[in-house]
């Protein structure tokens, strides 16, 4: 996944940036389900017992447990006997990298594959302007928000016409929602809540409306956008 870091004040040196990228590579080594030597692969081969989990893995699992409770059991890092914490790890990794950046500067932007944490001001000395990608045409933006010390994560798929099934019942749960963007203070929360709410279908945005400190912007297959009550407070004047 592409990683983008911007520090407009130049307060961070190349070598320091490299160490952040090293950290992200290390996260991939440890938590990729596809790397034979990763903790995740070891857990799935039953070669890593719970008592031998690292402190870091335990803290990731705590976030997963919290999310499972908050989403009514929907979000689960265990799927049919397979351990897969990826729904948490991406946001967690951005959050950790942001912490490393904060040691050097209060103005930064970090993105991994469309999920973003910003802090302070952009190069223009104002809030960071973030576009919401048009899920029907990735060269376009369909909304622009202004963020400072906030995070945004978007769940969805860039391919139309796929069918989403409920694995428990084998019933289609609909493909109405094509994109769901979530804004909140912290990327860990934005990412996990966006992931969970996206799979709730059209009810996902209602779920987010019910949460304090979260706003969301949903795009459905009819190219209609639905926003939570206070989403507009982030929207840039056009």
């Amino acid at each position: 996944m592409p990683v983008t870091i911007m520090c407009p004040d130049g307060a961070i040196e190349g070598s320091e940036l490299e160490s952040i990228f090293d950290f992200l590579r290390d996260v991939d080594e440890k938590y990729s389900p596809y790397k034979d030597t990763s903790d995740v692969a070891n857990i799935n081969r039953k070669e890593l017992d719970e008592q031998n989990y690292s402190q870091e893995l335990k803290s990731i699992l705590e976030i997963a447990d919290k999310t499972k409770k908050e989403t009514d059991g929907y979000f689960d890092v265990w799927h049919n006997g397979t351990f897969d914490p990826s729904g948490i790890v991406k946001g967690w990794a951005i959050g950790q990298a942001a912490r490393l950046l904060r040691a050097h500067t209060s103005d930064f932007y970090i993105e991994i594959a469309g999920d973003i944490q910003v802090s302070g001001e952009s190069l223009s000395g104002k809030d960071w302007k973030i576009g919401i990608r048009n899920p029907f045409d990735r060269t376009q933006n369909i909304a622009v928000v202004e963020l400072s010390n906030s995070a945004i994560a978007t769940s969805g798929t860039a391919i139309r016409g796929q069918h989403i099934y409920n694995p428990k019942t084998d019933e289609p749960i609909g493909d109405e929602v094509v994109s769901l963007s979530v804004i909140t203070k912290d990327i860990v929360d934005a990412d996990r809540i966006a992931t969970a709410a996206f799979a709730m279908g059209p009810d996902g945005i209602k779920f987010i409306e019910s949460l304090d400190g979260y706003e969301a912007y949903m795009v459905d297959k009819n190219k209609m956008a639905t926003q939570t009550t206070n989403w507009h407070t982030y929207e840039a004047e056009s």
Partner: peptide, 30 residues
């Protein structure tokens, strides 16, 4: 995911509109 039972929250009516392309310069894209 599995489906989730969503309670009937007391919901305001959420604003809905057709998507529109925005041309403003941005720092990043989600």
């Amino acid at each position: 995911g599995t489906s989730v039972e969503i309670n009937n929250y007391a919901m305001p009516i959420l604003k809905q509109q057709a998507i529109q392309v925005q041309s403003a310069q941005v720092d990043g894209v989600s």
